[in-house]
Design a protein around this nucleic acid. Structure first.
Ligand code: MN
Ligand code: MN
Ligand code: MN
Ligand code: MN
Lengths: 227, 227
DNA sequence: GCCGGATGTTAGGCACGTCTAATTCATCCG
DNA sequence: CGGATGAATTAGACGTGCCTAACATCCGGC
């Protein structure tokens, strides 16, 4: 039989493109050819070609920029779910540090069967957050990917509860982990030193200086309550 | 820079071919084009093409049939090690039944980093056998892949200790598991019923009839000792 | 001794996923 | 207005890994 054309064929590359489109848009960034090329470390023509394929397969639509169809988003969420379940598993079960799990999950997410995914999910007690505080999309049902506010620009005097830490910069992640900046922690936000200086915070009473790069990686909410 | 030619590039396909060549030869079977095609579910020309590539890359040599070079065997053993470590992990840590782990490991073995492999190995306490009794090649050093003798043809009256059960037939494996035929178990071998009939055995005193297909999947040694 | 079947190779083709080079197009700036 | 700049696409190529069709070989049986 001569090559039945399955439009929805998921390959590792297709999964990575869909996931990246999803993550870019939930970060509020424009999903352009060049943004995808930068993010995926491929050339622009590679992205153009893939967008053609995804568009033919009804996984994305192209008007100004690119956006996922309902089906494309479903597939993207499945990949994101596998990725974050794997990160959680690697950290909790194998004790892998939170700055290493992302790279591993990038590979494994394409090799995880539904059966194994379900087993991992059950073994972890159906977790809702990965080690970085990223929400794990449920197997079925709605998903909320909101990022809260960035620590950068949060006014001095606020009490700030960390909810998510971006897992994209492994070195920064390790540093933050060493300093105790993790989801769930509450920071007392102090002075933002001018001209690109550090942001002074208190963590459990201890002073800590967080550079610009770091404050842009930390997300959460301002909480009221007793100092 | 125009395509540096890395001869030893491992891809999932290359890994599968090397692994299959290794397993065929350790099973004492001839490593021919058609045997590989059958084993890997690909056409003969696909095998021919791949043998050309592996041969160019000094991973195999071709005289009568095909055999691995020292480097090819090293790579094959790395894949087999990852496969069996993964099977062990899936069974022990995630409680996956022994007839399901092989299929999962087939995929995951290509996505396992050295770092994660080491973590899994340590978490399991450096196991030497997978759930089917297959020996796990060490990260470095010699490996013994001998199969012992098959239960088929073992004379009645023998006491037979099961050491390995082939993991290639998932249904048979589940059946044997249900009946308690696992590595470590000792069987009292009874009559082989003629003309392709069952082999009668006692397992823990309980009678059990094992068809031809099954006795050819069970390997071990004849042990002396008290009945 | 020849024929048929099994085995293996060559030839040609295709989907995937990437690349570089060239082109198109809009925009911004002097 | 016109040229530079940047973003995107088109054109052409390539390696991987698979396929089918055709051809070459060898080997056993009649
Ligand atoms: Mn991640
Ligand atoms: Mn994460
Ligand atoms: Mn196996
Ligand atoms: Mn096994």
């Amino acid at each position: 039989m001569p090559n039945i054309r399955l439009v929805g064929t998921m390959t590792p590359a297709v999964e990575d493109y869909l996931k990246t489109i999803f993550l870019l848009s939930t970060r509020g960034e424009a999903v352009t050819t060049s943004a995808l090329a930068r993010e995926l470390h491929v050339s622009s023509p590679s992205v153009s070609a893939m967008m053609k394929r995804l568009s033919d397969g009804r996984l994305v639509e192209r008007e100004t920029g690119v956006h996922l169809t309902a089906q494309g988003e479903r597939e993207a969420l499945r990949v994101v779910r596998r990725h974050r379940l794997l990160e959680t598993f690697l950290a909790r079960v194998l004790g892998m540090p939170w700055d290493e799990v992302h790279v591993e999950a990038e590979l494994l997410e394409h090799a995880l069967s539904e059966r194994l995914e379900a087993r991992i999910d059950a073994a972890l007690g159906h977790p809702t957050r990965d080690p970085h505080g990223d929400p794990i999309p449920p197997a079925a049902g709605a998903h909320d990917e909101s990022w809260g506010r960035s620590l950068a620009g949060t006014p001095a005097g606020s009490r700030f509860r960390v909810e998510r830490v971006s897992d994209r910069d492994s070195d920064a992640l390790r540093y933050l982990g060493e300093k105790g900046v993790r989801p769930g922690v509450v920071l007392e936000v102090g002075e933002q030193e001018p001209y690109g200086g550090s942001c002074r915070v208190l963590l459990g009473g201890e002073p800590l200086a967080l550079g610009q790069v770091l404050t842009h990686l930390v997300f959460g909410t301002v909480v009221e309550g007793d100092a």
